[in-house]
């Protein structure tokens, strides 16, 4: 089944992608959705996920979210965020 999600890109992923947000229809299965997003974007998910950036689903770490729910839902926000620090 397909769901409409919003992919958001911050800092360096935003730089590679060239835009901040992309609405797209993807598979509700997370791994499948990642492959679909990877094929449609320029941020290099396969090589860089968990090494250079992480994904927040609706503001929470994707690994935590997937412990509670197994599928993506209509309207989910997927934010690609590099390992950043504050100050």
């Amino acid at each position: 089944m397909k769901v409409k999600i919003k992919a958001k890109f911050f800092a360096m992923p935003r730089d590679y992608q060239g835009e901040r947000e992309l609405e797209m229809e993807v598979s509700e299965d997370f791994q499948q959705a990642l492959e679909e997003i990877d094929s449609r974007t320029k941020i290099g998910i396969k090589e860089k996920l968990d090494k250079r950036f992480v994904i927040l689903i609706n503001g929470r770490n994707y690994r935590k979210v997937l412990e509670d729910k197994s599928k993506l839902e209509e309207g989910d926000n997927l934010a690609f965020v590099p390992f950043l620090g504050g100050g």
């Binding site: 934010a79 965020v81 950043l84 504050g86």
Partner: peptide, 13 residues
């Protein structure tokens, strides 16, 4: 690139 604001959108998210 963004200075200390590199975390801005992420914090709001």
């Amino acid at each position: 690139k963004y200075g200390t604001n590199s975390i801005y959108s992420f914090m709001i998210e």
